[in-house]
Design a protein around this nucleic acid. Sequence first.
RNA 1: GGUCCGGUAGCUCAGCUGGAUAGAGCAUCAGAUUUCUAAUCUGACGGUCAUAGGUUCGAAUCCUAUCCGGAUCACCA
Length: 594
Amino acid sequence: MTIEKFMSAAVKSAVKQLYGMDAADEQIQIQLTNKEFAGDYTLVVFPLLKISRKSPEATANEIGERLKSLHAEIKSYNAIKGFLNIKFTAEFWVQRLNAAVKNENFGLSHGKGKKLMIEYSSPNTNKPLHLGHIRNNLLGYAVANILEADGNDVVKVNLVNDRGVHICKSMLAWQKFGNGETPESSGKKGDHLVGEYYVRYDKEYKKQLAEIIATGIDENEAKSKVQIQLEVQEMLRKWEAQNPEIIALWKKMNSWVYDGFNKTYNDLGVSFDKIYYESQTYLLGKSLVYEGLKKGVFFRKDDGSVWVDLTTDGLDQKLLLRSDDTSVYITQDLGTAQQRVAEYNIDQMIYVVGNEQNYHFQVLKLILKKLGFDWANSIHHLSYGMVELPEGKMKSREGTVVDADDLIEEMISTAQKMSKQLGKLDKLNAEEENRVCRMVGLGALKYFILKVDPQKTMLFDPKESIDFNGNTGPFIQYTHARIKSVLHKANELQAQIPQTSACADINEKEISLIKLIDIFPETLASAAKEFSPSTIANYAYDIAKEYNQYYHEYQILREENEEIKLFRLMLSQKVADMIKKSMKLLGIDVPDRM
RNA sequence: GGUCCGGUAGCUCAGCUGGAUAGAGCAUCAGAUUUCUAAUCUGACGGUCAUAGGUUCGAAUCCUAUCCGGAUCACCA
């Protein structure tokens, strides 16, 4: 039971005894006591004044007195204005810690039985992943972990956009200019290789367009005459007609890209339970549109295209089927949503997609509701903001993309450089050194991105992210490694770290560490509710920082009182456990030594 | 123009189911080391929580309006 719940019940019965009335849940406000006041938890008594009909101070004092006499766990209380600060006994805190230590799965919930599906990553197969994808992947994976730890059954899916005119562009350019180049023959990573031809196409297109314009033809007219574009359109038609040669090329080049993506996913430590391919789902949803047409939810325009009118909902009209009866993006999303709900019987569907698609998901939910699906409300768009660079925005069309693989590489090598400089790698062998540098470099990147509220546009400064001080992944990793080192040394000295302790002589720093451990379950629950890895990230930092201060102040191994020493070791071990658990939720590994 | 999102210290960000004197880190300055791992710790400096109203015992937090920034409003995905 959480302390808040315990206090809430205690206050209720105290109020009942004192004033003969029941207090409603929303009248009981309990929070952690601010640092500048003496106490552990605080009851805000303002809402109870209506019941007590006394001044804030008098009410607080009366309730405090009553609580103290009823509960041995309460050591003291003080009332300041309308705030009743409660202080618990040392025994109480030790007991809380012991309960947490004994419970292997402390903080993790089991079997609320909600079935969730989360879709993230969703790459295009015509170019490599970039910084924006990194935020997407890290968010999706972390949120999936958090939801799972909160007791849900989570299915992670990836919907790969493997078809369309953009893919044909890479294919055509490769055909025309590639000379049969392959990842094997060139030594290039598959997705990068294909991405190069996508760029090559664009270059050729611009060249041809300029040539036509130079002959004096109007720009708009010229655009429809570019030879290479006509060829691409022809290729797309062939693809849709299942032309064997084109299909074979498509399969070959896509497989290169998948090899490349898998390496990047592997580096980032993300994974999926199921991968969907758009080439297999893009025809879905048409039947839903026909159904809606029959119900009169949609309408057909003179040219044959099908639309939905959302003007009464404050939005515009939205196209659902083209005049040639082919489906568009939203048509297929309607279809895949329905298919997934039917196939997996999911309670909630989460889409990790950039905030430039907020409108799309708003429309998607509306349409599904209009079609009469109750589950439309269970769709959640986990929207995230763009990642900007100090020099400007990073959008592919502006040509300043930061390639995911390059960035990962840079993070690892910077981690290595800095670690070497600090002499942190001296005691490690080559394999360990490699492992630690990877962990630190990637930890820096992941933590930097995940600590920010997803909704917000964030600034990614490579220099700052690789700073090993302050609120960073490496700082937290370091704290963990240092605790582990102390524990290791203790074991060498043959101190046995106890599973429980009767130590009653604890200090304020220790109480605040226990408090932090104690709120882990609530923190996790709230992070799950908000789909917010940043909550967990900041928790990990808080506890690491608190521990560092503690560590600095008390010499654990030199402590002469054996009982206190063992207690401190036990506490340290639990703190390390909390750090590791939190970081694991974020998909960040922590080293035992560095 | 419509819709959505954001605006908190010089910079990067927490805090937002309304609670006490708004918090961290970076940067700057001043300190701490016979290390249990200094990738650390202590202190100082730094704020009209975009602006103006409103709601109430109390507002960074809720409501309204305005300003600034971003996204979006394709027979693209």
